[in-house]
Design a protein around this nucleic acid. Structure first.
Lengths: 354, 354
DNA sequence: TAGTGTCTTTGGATCGATCTAATGCTGAGA
DNA sequence: TCTCAGCATTAGATCGATCCAAAGACACTA
């Protein structure tokens, strides 16, 4: 009985191409061809070589392949130290999606630590200089982010999770259409009968924030609803949001679309303060579908980002770029989806218990 | 003016050891020595070689090093697909800590996707067979986890985040002393004057859960406080926890120690139901210091895991194991810390506003 | 001057795969 | 019978660093 691939040898596998070749009675090159260009071999030879390969549990050494082909099959990702706690809750899902998609394409993700306070280029440079990676996935792309231009200048394949928010677009990216998400939120609220729909966002100037605000505004206009006096901004934490949303409630808003679940939570606190219940008295829709959304009480309706799809797209775009560095850039905007929970329930459903 | 290291060459760096050697007028081996064993070189030679190295922006090729030295300087980490939402919120912090510690030691983290539903060995086998990694960091170590034994059997260096919960201990690990955390929580509550302190945990049999329950019990005994009828269990989500905690409250508990922030949140809901305010009417302490803890209102006192330290320890233990495979196993138990917020405030502080 | 030892430096082989170009083999056509 | 495609296979060089053992430089003694 031939040893199965699942137990090649007790201690690692010092099985080399040459050993397999000797066993199968062919040259090393033929074994290599059996793996990389099987169509070159005569069927019977192929079978014989394949037999030897899995009898011996052979696996090509990545190091040798990397050295020869000049491709490490590694994708670099600079992980940042919990930036602000807002985009963080979803990052591990994104990382998993990336790893999964990369694995399926025969690549792997290489993590490196980015120092806090804006991504520096140092880590990227080091990885490149030593030919450790074939390309990069960037995330937390900020305004004035220097990475895209820097990488593009030296012809390094990369893809961004998030478009460029200032200057012209550089390179490929995949992003979530925030405007579409808040637009859908407004649509949902209008269907629930709301007309005084407010928006609680971040200060203008943040790309992501302006995008999300834009969707709200667009949908409001479409329905002929006024937006003046229905928008508030809050920079910091939940507490700041609680205060910022007050004027909106005072002005009689019956629904609030928030640019993040954190902001929506601030809204919850403001409502509780006046003994109002989210979803019963004032509808609230958040953004991100962070873990807290389903946990809050009442549970928070929110716009969910399709992170798995973003991960897949990032890998797809990156591989395409590596395959053809001269191809025109490709940009993908993915649709988020509204997750309906109790804070803005489905039309016709009962009022949630507080 | 010599080119600085920060801009080696426009397109990657095809600079090789041999090129540097020619430039410096020495043999390739000498350049290698200049990097790896500088003490072998005559000071003036060393300086000359070093000059050439950074004039040309030379960086050794990792692939070639890996091939020759049989060490990839990569550490594998199988990332799991958001397991249950409970340990997840902290995983990205842990990953960052790992990356950071690894980077500082000249290693990098290699991510690969573990399929959902218990870690399979496939991914580990693949990585090993191709000599892609020098060792592994395991996390989410479960009961009956097969990975440790499997890796140990083939002499692969690894370290676990989390001890073995069944059978004998295998290999090195770093873990957080959960018992110590809940013990400290009880101490804090006792100092606040509480005596009827309940524990809301997971069903017995989960290692982590029993550990945390043990700390509560130990501290209660130490203070001569009864534990009978003061313990409840909940398996699932927040809703289940809300129901599970009711009997404890009915029995007059004035404080609840929860095995996780999720469970603590269930407790919040149960309290709100009876118009009681956490921290004012009943003290609550969570576990994990997940992002929601600081966000809830009132904010949740909770036991924080020193994830950065765990990451550092994991890397340290792993490197030690690789340096000496025969050394006796080393196990590190790290102290968590109590983060005091409004749900169980500091003694003498004002009652928090609801 | 030759001999011995230390201290630097070097040549050549090596890790394990893939590249290029060349080989042996077969059968069709002249 | 001989040539010449066309296919299957192979030999040898190569990627870029590090290992080992041996050679050169140098001072210092006998």
């Amino acid at each position: 009985m031939p040893r199965s691939t699942s137990s090649p040898s007790p201690k690692g596998s010092p099985v080399t191409l040459a050993m397999v070749a000797r066993r199968a009675g062919v040259s090393p090159q033929t074994v290599s061809n059996a793996i990389n260009s099987p169509e070159l071999l005569r069927p019977e030879t192929l079978e014989r070589v394949r037999g030897a390969i899995d009898e011996m549990g052979y696996r090509p050494s990545r190091a040798a392949q990397t050295l020869r082909t000049r491709s490490s099959k590694l994708i670099g990702y600079g992980i940042q130290p919990t930036p602000g706690g807002d985009t963080a809750p979803v990052m591990d899902r994104f990382l998993h999606a990336l790893s999964q998609a990369a694995d399926e394409a025969g690549y792997r993700m290489l993590l490196f630590a980015c120092p806090p306070g804006g991504p520096s280029l140092e880590g990227y440079e080091e990885l490149l200089g030593r030919h450790e990676v074939d390309g990069f996935v960037l995330s937390n792309t900020a305004r004035q982010d220097p990475r895209q231009a820097w990488l593009a200048k030296r012809g390094v394949p990369f893809v961004g999770f998030g478009r460029m928010w200032s200057g012209r677009q550089i390179g490929d990216w995949a992003d979530v259409d925030g405007a579409s998400g808040t637009d859908a939120a407004v649509e949902h609220l209008v269907a629930l009968g709301h007309r005084r729909i407010a928006f609680l966002g971040w200060p203008r100037g943040s790309g992501v924030g302006d995008d999300r605000a834009g969707g709200w505004q667009r949908a409001m206009r479409r329905h002929g609803l006024p937006t003046r006096g229905r928008r508030a901004e809050s920079a910091g934490d939940v507490e700041a949001a609680r205060i910022a949303v007050k004027p909106l409630l005072d002005a009689g808003a019956t629904a609030v679309v928030a640019a993040s679940d954190m902001l929506a939570l601030g809204c919850y606190h403001a409502l509780r303060e006046r003994n109002a219940v989210p979803g019963r008295d004032v509808a609230v829709v958040g953004f991100d579908d962070s873990p807290i959304a389903g946990i809050l009480s009442p549970s928070l309706s929110t716009v969910a980002q399709p992170l798995e799809a973003v991960g897949r797209e990032c890998v797809r775009l990156l591989l395409a770029r590596m395959a053809d560095p001269a191809a025109p850039p490709e940009r993908v905007l993915l649709e988020p989806s509204l997750v309906i929970r109790d804070s803005a329930p489905a039309p016709g459903s009962d009022t949630p218990a507080p």
